Simulated scan of single mutants.
Amino acid sequence: MLQDNGGRMRQVNIVDETGWSKSKVSMLLSDMEDDGLISKLRMGRENIVSLSGQEPEATRSALDDE
Rank of each mutant, 00 (worst) to 15 (best):
G6L: 03
Q54H: 15
R45L: 06
S61F: 01
T18K: 08
I48F: 02
E46Y: 03
G36N: 10
V12T: 14
L2Q: 02
M9Q: 07
D4A: 13
Q3S: 10
I38K: 10
L41C: 04
E33K: 06
S30F: 09
Q11M: 15
G6S: 12
D35Q: 15
M32S: 08
W20P: 00
S39R: 09
N47Y: 15
M1T: 12
E33S: 11
S61V: 00
S26M: 05
M43F: 07
L37R: 14
G19A: 03
R10N: 11
I14S: 12
L37I: 14
L51A: 04
W20Q: 14
Q11I: 09
S61K: 03
L28Y: 07
R8G: 04
D16E: 15
R8Y: 02
V25E: 01
G7N: 08
K40R: 15
V12M: 10
N13P: 02
S26F: 06
L41I: 12
R60H: 00
V12W: 04
G6Y: 02
E57N: 06
L2H: 03
D16F: 11
I14N: 04
N5M: 12
S21Q: 03
K40M: 11
L51D: 07
I48K: 03
S26L: 06
D35P: 02
S26Y: 12
L63K: 13
E55H: 01
P56C: 01
G36R: 00
L29I: 12
R60M: 02
I38L: 13
G19H: 03
T59F: 02
E33W: 07
D34Q: 11
D35S: 08
K40C: 04
E57C: 03
N13V: 09
R10A: 15
K22L: 11
K22V: 14
S39F: 03
S21I: 04
I14V: 15
L37W: 12
G6D: 08
L28H: 11
L51K: 04
E57F: 05
D65Y: 05
N13K: 08
G36Y: 01
I38Q: 10
L41R: 01
R42W: 00
R45I: 01
S50C: 15
E17F: 09
I38G: 07
M27D: 14
Q11H: 04
D31A: 10
S61T: 03
S52F: 08
L51E: 05
